[in-house]
Design a protein around this nucleic acid. Structure first.
Lengths: 149, 149
DNA sequence: GTATTTGCAAAAGCTTTGCTGCAAC
DNA sequence: GTTGCAGCAAAGCTTTTGCAAATAC
């Protein structure tokens, strides 16, 4: 499993104090393994504090994105235009979304790391966020996919 | 410059007949160098046929996406949640968006091609669409960026 | 007491859809 | 005369915003 950063300690290291609601949101994000959309995050966080509002969720996500502690994904817009969020990992990784079954596979690769170094060096570009997503058919669905799209 | 496919001949090769409006839209997309959002595409296409409706634009884009003739981009949501479209190129490429000046640099790399082969082989994943976007600071803006975010 | 956050509701932005009439083959 | 497309308007989904009340320091 990919090593995810610890949000609370990073926030503390930056001297950022959290309100109770934001702490509940951060803890919910930290403790969720997969890819969270706003509606799911709100629902889960409300189990800790039923008063949390959608606007607070968006505002907290904005903060965490700005601090580069979470990443925003589209997952190929498989389920509409909403975004998904995940805790940053030590190594960047890419997401493979199956258009048929909706499964998402994560994948780290030294080639990806090399590509990032090339981007920085050849384009003299200072990467803050990088997002590599692919859509297609996972192995299982490709096998079932004889003749039919 | 990256070699873009020819939409009309690909469509013809697939036996797809276009209405006059769809042809106008396809030609507009083909002739536009950069990254088109729906509003810009509509505006440009209306110079050919002022009756074109937004719904027709969306329906035509949907068709071209399904046929894998155009790609959809987010460009790091620099200007809201809208999508951008571009004609498929012979080689996939990645997009570097500068958060400060909004410039978009495209970049092909044999390392990216290698990465795609690894994805297919190591994950047994059949890639239909791949999208690699990065956000950060371009060289010019990074240099101006002493001390300020 | 000042600054920041919350709650609520409304608005905004972009995309999709229903349906009627129209055009193509 | 079936089938698919266009036109229009409304609805849909997600995200953002304005502002008054509440909270934190």
């Amino acid at each position: 499993m990919l090593q995810r950063i610890d949000l609370l300690s990073k926030l503390e290291a930056q001297g950022i104090r959290l309100t109770a609601q934001r702490r509940a949101l951060v803890e919910t994000i930290q403790q969720t393994a997969g890819h969270l959309d706003v509606a799911s995050l709100l629902e889960k966080a409300r189990k800790r504090d039923s008063k949390i509002d959608r606007a607070t969720v968006y505002r907290t996500i904005e903060l965490l994105k700005k601090l580069e502690l979470i990443d925003e994904l589209d997952l190929m817009h498989l389920n509409g235009e909403k975004h998904y969020y995940e805790v940053r990992t030590q190594k960047d990784h890419l997401h493979l979304t199956c258009f048929r079954c909706g499964s998402v596979v994560e994948f780290t690769s030294s080639t990806f790391e090399r590509l990032k170094r090339e981007i920085a060096k050849e384009n003299l570009f200072n990467i803050q966020v990088i997002r590599l997503e692919a859509g297609g058919l996972c192995q299982h669905c490709a096998e079932k996919n004889e003749g039919k799209n």
